[in-house]
Each structure stands twice: as C-alpha cells, then as structure tokens.
C-alpha cells in the first residue's frame, strides 16, 4: 500500500455528505413511521380483540424472523408491481424500513406498556376511563420514560441498517463511500473513513441512550 491519502476523502466530501444525508433522512423517516406503526401494533396486540391481536402478533413475528435484506428485496420488487408503475428504489425502501421497524418498535412499546403495574390499568379503568384513554393518559406516559433508552438504541441499530440499501444501489453513505472507493481505487481510505464516521455517530447515539437510562434510574 502507498500511504493513507486524505485528499481523496476531502475531494469526495460533498458526494459523501449527500450520502450521509440520505442515510440520516432514511433513519429519521423509518424511526417516526416505525414508532407510529409500532404503537398501533402494540396497542392492538394488548387489546381484547383476539383476532386482531393474533394478526398483529403474526405481523411482528413474521418481520422479526426474516433478514432486512430479504425484506428490502421483497418491497423493491413488490411495490412497483402493486402500484402498477415504477416508483424508484427510494420509495420501496422507505416502505420496507417503516414496516420492518414497526415490528421491532412494537415489541419495545409493548414491553414498555406491559411493564406498567397492572394496578395502574385497574386504577384508570376504575375511574371510568376507556382502554384508549387509560393508555394515553396513564400507561403510555409512564412507559415512555422506560422505553426512551431502548428507542434510541434501536435508532442506532436502524441507522446502521440503512447501510443495507447498498443492495438496491441507493446512494446512502455506505454506498457512496463504496462508489468513491472503487472509482478512485482508494479502498482503504474510504472504508476506514466511513467506519470512523459511523463509529462517531453511533457512539454519540449509544451515549445518549446510556444517559437516558441512568437518568431514569436516578429518578427512581
């Protein structure tokens, strides 16, 4: 090897930054969409509607049993077929990520809701609240505090998972780094740089999760 050439990285920074933007944007949308979907799934799974709860459980266990890459392939080919027209890889991937993350977030939310003492459900019920009121006013606010660190941790995992869009050639940070690495023939520089950026961002996220979790322990 012939020395570590930083100028390659500097020259490619705008292109790499655009890729990082896509990675972060994909993470944000998948997180928000996944949380919303996960909340609905969790509430349905804990509800009295047996059939719906079973369907929700099948959804969650199904998505959790299958690799994300396979899910990306599924939606990459399925979405255009369902819509009857090409929509581009980005939209297919967005849908795949939201549905996939929804399954994982629903498990975090469900565990959070279940961690609230049954007496709290009973107290809310006893005062005449409906199921949804009890969740919204009494159970979810308590559960959110417990879930926050896990949600951030899952966000870090999700950010790392966005690198898998490499398989459908979307130009996220990972793919952009790989493109520069191959076109400039500077594999070592680009992959080491990419690893450093991922490491820095994920460490920041993990640290935030740890702080949230120790804050919570101190509060009790």
């Amino acid at each position: 090897m012939s020395g570590f050439d930083v100028s390659v990285i500097l020259g490619a920074l705008p292109f790499l930054a655009k890729g990082l933007g896509l990675s972060l944007g994909l993470t944000a949308i998948a997180m928000i969409g996944g949380l919303a979907l996960g909340l609905v799934i969790a509430i349905v799974r804990l509800s009295r509607f047996r059939v719906l709860a079973t369907l929700a459980a099948l959804y969650v266990n199904g998505f959790r049993a299958v690799p994300l890459i396979l899910v990306i392939f599924w939606f990459y080919f399925l979405v255009p077929l369902l819509l009857g027209r090409p929509v581009g890889a980005l939209y297919s991937v967005l849908i795949a990520f939201v549905m996939f993350e929804g399954a994982y977030y629903s498990e975090i939310i469900r565990a959070g809701l279940k961690s609230v003492r049954p007496g709290q459900w009973q107290a809310a019920q006893a005062s005449g609240m409906s199921y949804l009121q009890a969740i919204r006013l009494v159970v979810l606010p308590q559960a959110l505090r417990k879930m926050a660190p896990l949600m951030v941790t899952q966000g870090v995992v999700l950010f790392q998972d966005t690198s898998l869009v490499y398989v459908v050639s979307l130009h996220d940070f990972m793919t952009s780094a790989s493109i520069v690495a191959n076109t400039q023939n500077r594999i070592v520089e680009l992959y080491v740089f990419a690893a450093l950026v991922y490491f820095a961002l994920c460490t920041a996220g993990s640290t935030l999760a740890q702080r949230l979790s120790s804050d919570r322990q101190r509060a009790h």
Partner: peptide
C-alpha cells in the same frame, strides 16, 4: 464492533 454497521465490517 457494536457501533459500525456489519456490512461495513465485512468490507473492512
């Protein structure tokens, strides 16, 4: 090992 994507680790 936890804070770098597995895909990138494979490449490395």
């Amino acid at each position: 090992f936890r804070n770098v994507p597995l895909l990138l680790q494979m490449f490395l």
